[in-house]
């Protein structure tokens, strides 16, 4: 009898310890891992850009002979799934806030940065460039998402061009099934005409998954990287 009680209490203590360790893992260790993974991705991008092999750059030479009839000539090459192609800066979330944007929104991809919805437009193109990111865990990239306000800048670079988007809406709360928010012309944003839009999505509430938070932005300005950082990032 004593052995049974002792073994049972030892098991309870063990389970408790494992749970505490798991909380440490989720709250702390995923952040450590994500920070190094994101630094890796950005370093990878910068190395790529330094070599001048901008795979998805808008300045890709006009396709020789193999021009497919459907694609417009300035259409950039498709992004590679799970690979970084841009860096995002949002001054409102912190002057040093910058995260890599990877292609796809798979769980594994979102551990290494923000994820671009593969079905949506490409950076700076006509349509809706939609990006998802973690609110909590894995570096908490969108922790301060509710602080975004109309007029805030969202700046992205693909190594060749700076794209400055301006947020037009306060964070909008919706249901996870509301896929119309990443439509080319997201109606609920108040946009009525086709344009070059950006959508950011994350989870709501902070630690839950019952809803999503959305903000919309429009492309305000572009400039080549040679012209220096856009005004929104200068201080």
């Amino acid at each position: 009898m004593r052995v049974v009680v002792r073994t049972f209490s030892e098991l309870c203590i063990t389970v408790g310890t494992v749970i505490v360790l798991f909380v440490v893992y989720v709250l702390f260790w995923t952040g450590v891992k994500a920070d190094s993974a994101m630094d890796d991705q950005i370093a990878q991008l910068q190395e790529q850009w330094a070599k001048g092999s901008v795979t998805a750059g808008p300045e890709a030479p006009t396709s020789t002979a193999t021009g497919s009839p459907g694609a417009s000539p300035e259409e950039p090459a498709p992004y590679k799934d799970g690979k970084p192609f841009a860096v995002m800066y949002i001054p409102r979330l912190g002057f040093t806030w910058n995260k890599p944007v990877l292609e796809g929104t798979k769980t594994g991809t979102l551990k290494k940065g923000l994820g671009h919805y593969a079905s949506t437009a490409q950076l700076g193109q006509e349509g809706n460039f939609a990006v998802a990111g973690h609110r909590r865990t894995y570096g908490d990239p969108f922790k301060d998402f509710p602080r975004l306000r109309p007029g805030d800048a969202v700046v992205l670079t693909d190594g060749a061009t700076w794209f400055t988007y301006r947020i037009d809406t306060k964070p909008y709360k919706t249901l996870p099934s509301d896929i119309a928010v990443i439509d080319p012309v997201p109606r609920k944003s108040g946009y009525t005409r086709e344009g070059r839009y950006l959508t950011l999505t994350t989870c709501e509430p902070e630690w839950g998954h019952s809803h999503r938070l959305i903000v919309w932005a429009h492309l305000d300005a572009t400039q080549p990287v040679e012209a220096g950082k856009p005004e929104a990032l200068r201080r």
Binding site: G115, S119, I182, C203
Partner: peptide, 14 residues
């Protein structure tokens, strides 16, 4: 960890 809800950040559940 993926069994917890913190990974659901997209609107199309991919």
């Amino acid at each position: 960890e993926p069994l917890l809800p913190f990974n659901d950040v997209t609107v199309d559940n991919q």
